[in-house]
Structures are given as C-alpha cells and as structure tokens.
Design a protein around this nucleic acid. Sequence first.
DNA 1: TTATTATATGATAATCATTATCATATAGGA
DNA 2: TCCTATATGATAATGATTATCATATAATAA
Lengths: 148, 148
Amino acid sequence: MADFEERFHSIVEKLKENNHKITPQRLAVAKILALSKGHPSVEEIYEQLQKDFPTMSLATVYRNVILIKSLGEVLELGFPDGRNRYDGNKPYSHPHVVCVRCKKILDWDFSNLKDMAKRITDETGFKILSHRLDFFGICQDCLGKNAV
Amino acid sequence: MADFEERFHSIVEKLKENNHKITPQRLAVAKILALSKGHPSVEEIYEQLQKDFPTMSLATVYRNVILIKSLGEVLELGFPDGRNRYDGNKPYSHPHVVCVRCKKILDWDFSNLKDMAKRITDETGFKILSHRLDFFGICQDCLGKNAV
DNA sequence: TTATTATATGATAATCATTATCATATAGGA
DNA sequence: TCCTATATGATAATGATTATCATATAATAA
C-alpha cells in the first residue's frame, strides 16, 4: 500500500473506531491531509476542494481538520503570524525547515530528540507529550529570486 | 550589572540608536520585557502596567513589543491557540519546555543546534536565520494537582 | 427498502488576538 | 520656549478560528 493510501486508511479507521460518520466531505478532507506534502493551511485545503465540492463550507473543512487532529492523525503547526499549517502525512512531532519568505515547509528527519525529552523529565519533572523543532530561514528558490 | 539591567540597557540603547523616542510607556514595556522570566503575553504586560500607568492603552503595549521585537531585542513565541508569548530576557532562539495545561514556559539551555543548522544549509540550500525547539508536556505542579 | 434519529453540513454570526486609524499629546531638537 | 515628527489613547477594522442554528444526511433498525 502506498504511503498516502496507508495514511488515508489509518485516518478513516480512526474515524470509524470513534463512531464518526463517513461523509464525502470528511473523506475528501482526510484524503488531502493524507496526501499533504506541502503542509497545507485550512484555506488551501478548502480551495483544493472547490473543484469537486463547490458547495462545501469553509466551516466544514475546519471542523474536519480539527476532528482528525483530535484523533491524533494530523500534526498542527502554528505560527505567530498567519495561518496554521497541517501535516497529515507525518502526524507525529518532527523537525521542519521553514522559509520565512514563501512559507514553504520541508520535513527534516532527525532523531535523538527522545533522549532530550527523557533528560527534561528527569530534571524538571515535566511529562513530555510532544515537541516541536523548527528551523526558519530562506529557501534556495527565494534566495535565487532576490539576493539577500 | 545585573542580568536584567544589562538587558534593559541593551533595549534602550537599541531604541536610541534607531532614533525612537524614549517615552515613559516605552521604558516601562522595555523594563518588563528585560525582567521577563515567565514569558509574558502582551495582555499580561498590559496588566502589570495598570498599577503605574493606569491610562496606558493596550495598543501602546502591542506597538512597543513589536518595535522592540523588530530591533531583535525580544523573542516572540507563537502558539496555534491563544496568545503570543515574549522573552526579552533571552531574545535569541533557544529551546523551551511548555506546560500544555497551565501554559508555563521554562527555558531549556541546549546547544549543538548550530551544527544541525549547518547540515540543513548544506543539504537543502536554506539560509537558516533562526530556529525554534519546544517540548510540550505537563509540568510537575499540574501533575500533582490532577493525576493523569 | 424505508423510517428514524443522532450527527454533519452550509451559511453566517461571534470571538479573540492583533493591527490600523486618527485626533491629541509629547519628546527632543532648534 | 517653540516646533514638528513621532508616540499615545481610544476605538474601529481585520483575519483566522469557533459557535450557532436550521436543514440535510449517514447509519442503524424495523
């Protein structure tokens, strides 16, 4: 099973397990989240759905993204300015590299953060649930367009 | 010079260097940011100022926090839900440990992130400007109050 | 297959942090 | 002390997100 199919299947299973109804709109949002490589915002998901679901409400997209997030099947990335971004492809905590100019977000695999979490628990008593590691910078595309 | 005095001095110097007027309100905001250990929100700064500056506008607090941030003298921490939090005591990128229940934020010193930034530049071409590493969990106080 | 009912949707209003506006006040130099 | 650019206070506007509510529909049972 391809990666995105596995993710899609996993999201749908979670929805069923928790007795949420399977609607076309819900499936459509789940599919986009499962496919998401570019870390879309709710607005972007909404726009992508306009073609197939021209009557879908923005509120429905919000509701379903939040629902799927509550099931642990999508990772939410918030920023001080602008919109939240979502990763349904890798719903667990992981590092990112963010272009502050074009808002591109790349995944950046890297481990040994678990060791750090353990150290924190030992030293502060915090029960660590998740983490977030983001590097902010300017991507190669943007550097090319406009010298810094 | 005590740590907070040094920070306060540094902020005021930056303001002067950039030809910003030194007003009592501005100094008061700078002072709170320089002293900040608890990572206050704008609202919290505003409340702290009510005693000494009962007529100060919330907008003035926002304006000055943003101004000081634009001078690189305060670190802004955004979260998907709720308010931005500010660190004027350590205005550079550094890890945090965040309690998702009471919103307490602790600093967590840790280095070797620079090596990681260099690796990212080598492999993706990003020019890294800053980073953010946050661990989210439940603090000891909150764990005590209410078993998890 | 149809009826039933809890839940989902669409449309839109409300919320909340943040930002913009604008008349008035004031810091800092002349 | 005067002058002027900038800062402040009060408040409206914005933009993302959340809540509301009437209507529609998925899922279950008859």
